[in-house]
Design a protein around this nucleic acid. Structure first.
Lengths: 394, 394
DNA sequence: CTCCCTTCTTCCAGCTCGTGAATTAAGCCG
DNA sequence: CGGCTTAATTCACGAGCTGGAAGAAGGGAG
């Protein structure tokens, strides 16, 4: 049976969660506003808030005058109640960042890695963890959790498949847990970047959205009804391998005509070369040059890319009916900065009228460094969900 | 604030809902099994069940011997506690069916309609409603609700857009409510067929699935995490207008290369004719003939259709990562009955390895008459959600 | 400076709910 | 008919939320 019972304690937890989430996500709020927004009674709000303050999760933060009467006291989540750490595992480096609960970066550590074996990665993440804790001068007990973002399919905190790293079935959370007492969460990198954009970037306020990431490859994070949608087995969002040109270009996944083969930077540059263009050196530099070129075949290639990307967007618009599509990834941002308006117009040509009219297409706001930030929200999500109940003392 | 408070009454309602849903969806259950499945205490289960029995929603249905002790009494939702009515609004007819809570059909009424204006449809649905109530000899107070399925986008019980009927912004639920006291629910036809398959057909047991419907046109119903996914504004699932051949055939939606233009029966026959085949008369007959033909160009057309459909499925597999895809619609069934295995193989060529390995592709079990059945589940869904609380007396 | 007014916050009695332990019910077996 | 096993119910208890009343905190008028 999928539905769970409710007990009187769930009620408490649930209401603590509602209040804490409200305070965290909608800025400083007064008890008064909380009673209105949660439709709890003033008595209960006061009661719950008192509990949260006593535990140190919430603190009073000044007051705001009311219309002649007693001023309301503003409440916020105490930024230094606990800290969270986010880690981004890339092919060539591991980045670890420590944040307070207001998500201010307090310390950062980068480790280049030569060969991204699980052992190497675990070692560097744990080292990074120690480094940032030491650098920020806090106690390790103060760290609520460590979120790790990896480019690959992550199911139940274990890597199922991470092609770029060459990993398969790596129980990353377990390996990390052997080296630290801090609770570890592992998730997919695209989802984490999406999460960061949804909370702090261009996705704020949306409940049904897609964060589309175009880099050398192409991926996306789906958000449905306010939370990340992962599908039956955690691999939803593989937008890059959607067939868009039946029988078209060969994609590195083996199939023909995938979106990635047309709009991923690698695919774009490849098409450019085939059309007679020259693209040397660093992929990113070459991509910028292509975008800035005003001669053929560059302009055609760029225009075609916009068209293909638009079709990919339109497929999302039709199938998922999001209220917002957030375009990111280094190549996506470069393309979007120059051609967002054309892209919007092209999407309109491929999408159905109604869902197209309901979607807004915008650019990512946080840049690609936000992956660690997104990963660091994992422990925060848990804190909010559990109504501020801190994991048992270790 | 999206999250709602929880009060002591919500707890009761929620637990009633858990128990009632358990009894309804997982066949006759004993109190004993309910305590295990819901993890509620035996005392509470007994208490809640007693309440439900007193209200008449649940009844005892025989007993089953236990291992030497007192036999457990089986519980079921009383099939005749209330009744539900489902209506299917098509272009040429309105079908209304009355069911008991076990979803046995007790009466049926069909009305052909000449021109499907809203007035005409409202009139025939209401007439059908009276007819089935009279024919089954129950009181109209006994009818829990009327579910209406319409081919079009339905938002908040009102038709937003129904191209096949030529409707726009028709407040269908309101119009119907003017003619009856029975609570009215309106929803999209594809979703209702999907709902029927999910509850009673090939989708049973799945929580993340897609019901793909291929008829003259192409549509789908998405099911995410156990319930229908509708997107930001109720138009999710427009799978038919996914671009699959960039710059390809013109679709009736105006765009180029939509899936529907390749695998919808109309599109298939059109491609057949363009390839030199002859397809006369009734669309369905022609389609059957095409499928049965063993000569060129028929076989090529059929093979190509399987390929295109497979690419469409693969796009679903990659993007949504469902555990099951249920193929239906008259053309989909005809095609699937002969070529399901080829289809599965072709999907494997377009989809990513992992999500492909996790999905099972099966055929609809209920036939196209299940739309009214699906619509009739709408009031049942509400009954279960509210824990058996019946709407206020009218 | 004092008093009153307004508004926010807390306190308290009352009610509902689920729980565990004990009790009762129901059937089987010898 | 007693003993045994398992199912269902009863009951006292603690946990939670609520509405109304009381208390607290400012601002402004006199």
């Amino acid at each position: 049976m999928e539905v769970r019972r409710t007990t009187v304690r769930d009620m408490r937890r649930s209401n603590r969660s509602v209040i804490l989430t409200g305070i965290y996500r909608e800025g400083p709020l007064s008890r008064q506003e909380l009673t209105v927004r949660t439709s709890l009674s003033a008595a209960s709000v006061s009661n719950l808030v008192a509990e949260l303050i006593a535990e140190g999760v919430v603190e009073e933060a000044g007051s705001v005058e009311s219309e002649g009467g007693r001023p309301r006291v503003l409440l916020r989540v105490a930024p230094t109640f606990r800290y969270v750490v986010g880690a981004e595992v890339g092919e060539t480096r591991v980045r670890v960042e420590l944040f307070d609960l207001a998500m201010n970066v307090l310390a950062r550590a980068d480790h280049p890695i030569a060969t991204p074996t699980p052992e190497e990665v675990v070692k560097h993440v744990l080292e990074g963890l120690s480094t940032v804790i030491a650098a920020s001068g806090i106690q390790s007990e103060q760290v609520l959790g460590l979120g790790v973002a990896v480019a690959g399919v992550v199911e139940d905190n274990a890597i199922v498949d991470a092609q770029t790293l060459g990993w398969e079935a790596v129980p990353l959370a377990r390996l990390l847990a052997e080296g630290t007492d801090i609770p570890v969460h592992v998730d997919n990198g695209a989802n984490m970047l999406g999460q960061a954009e949804m909370w702090f970037g261009a996705g704020r306020g949306a409940t049904d959205a897609v964060v589309a990431l175009v880099g050398s490859g192409v991926g996306s994070a789906l958000v449905a009804g306010g939370s990340s949608y992962r599908g039956a087995r955690s691999s939803a969002g593989e937008w890059g391998h959607m067939t868009i040109v039946y029988g078209g270009r060969q994609c590195r996944c083996g199939a023909l005509g995938c979106l990635e083969a047309y709009v991923g930077a690698e695919g774009v540059l490849d098409r450019y070369r085939l059309a007679g263009g020259t693209a040397d050196g660093d992929e990113e530099t070459a991509f910028v040059e292509l975008l800035e070129s005003t001669t053929e075949p560059a302009t055609t290639i760029v225009n075609d890319t916009i068209g293909y990307l638009a079709a990919g967007f339109a497929n999302l618009v039709n199938l998922v009916n999001p209220e917002r599509i957030v375009l990111g990834g280094w190549a996506g941002l470069l393309l979007g900065e120059k051609h967002l308006e054309e892209l919007r117009v092209e999407v309109g040509k491929h999408a159905l009228r109604r869902p197209y009219a309901q979607v807004s297409i915008v650019l990512c706001e946080l840049g690609r460094d936000a992956v660690a930030l997104g990963a660091a929200t994992l422990p925060v999500v848990r804190l909010l969900r559990d109504g501020g109940a801190v994991p048992l003392p270790r």
